[in-house]
Simulated scan of single mutants.
Amino acid sequence: MSGFSIERDIVSYVAIGDSFTEGMSDPYPDSTAVPTGRYRGWADRLAEHMADHIGEVRYANLAVRGKLIRQIVAEQLPRAIELRPDLVTICAGGNDIIRPGSDPDQVAEIFEGAIGRLRETGADVLIFTGFDTGFQPVMRRFRGKIATYNMHLRGIADRYGCQVVDLWSMKIFADRQAWDADRLHLSPEGHRRLALRVAEVLGLPADEDWNAPWPALPPMAWHVARQQDLHWAREFLVPWIGRRLTGRSSGDGIRPKRPNLERLR
């Protein structure tokens, strides 16, 4: 990355993307300070971590669940450019890649256009590869497309001087403890570990190891695993297919949780 430094007195940070960056499945505890039902996620955790080590952090999170890459570029990118932050994190294209008939080459072309516009502002940009889904029975069918997209992302990062968080190589995410029951979004502990990894990539000190071994879980009986598979299909897969068939999105009517750069603490 060309110039991000934790030695700055003031840092402005904007996160854009979909549910991954909004923080789905990592809810804040109910409180009067945070609206009930708002998600925290790795990006909020990262901003909080930055505030522990930098004099002043101003943070905006424009990510909205369910958004496709064209929607992110149309709805979030102009606002991110308008805010002129020092740092932008962007993870986009995942929802496109897992749709039947999508072309990772075309998705990458749109992504590259967005990166070019962000870098023209002088902002440092950090991007994410896709996860290795080989451990998930249903999602592993997209593994080849994700790998192709990841190769494009690495090339884009090289061309534009972006830092990369390589989710594919983070084997801790092959454990079910890293994931929520929907098998699509990280668990709170998964988000916490990812925030530590992003902080590490940015050069921020961290007191804990994101790659620490997971606590051992007892073996799962075959019939219990199948029951969980059936529950997952009924509660999450069928509704997801229903939204695809009807043209609906989980993000319909959802607004960004932090649309403005606001000081933390």
Results as ranks from 00 to 15, higher is better:
I16L: 15
R192H: 12
G66F: 07
S102V: 06
H53M: 05
L204Q: 03
L46K: 03
R79F: 06
W222Q: 08
I6W: 04
K171H: 11
H152W: 09
A108C: 10
K67S: 13
H231Y: 08
D30A: 13
G55H: 11
E112G: 06
D26T: 04
R193A: 03
R197T: 02
I72T: 10
R154G: 10
I6A: 15
R40K: 14
A147N: 08
F173A: 03
L46C: 07
W232N: 07
M1G: 14
I10A: 10
R248T: 15
V107T: 15
S31K: 04
T133C: 14
P137H: 01
C162E: 05
V164H: 06
K171G: 04
G134F: 10
M24L: 14
V125N: 08
R255Q: 13
A63D: 00
G37H: 04
Q106I: 05
R119I: 08
D105R: 15
F111R: 08
P215I: 14
E109P: 01
V164K: 09
D26I: 08
Q228Y: 01
L237F: 14
V138A: 07
R119M: 02
W210R: 01
D166R: 13
R79N: 01
Q228D: 10
E208W: 00
P78H: 12
P215K: 07
G66R: 03
S5N: 12
D9V: 04
Q163N: 09
S19C: 09
E48V: 11
A33R: 11
L264E: 00
Q136M: 13
T21D: 02
R234K: 12
L87K: 05
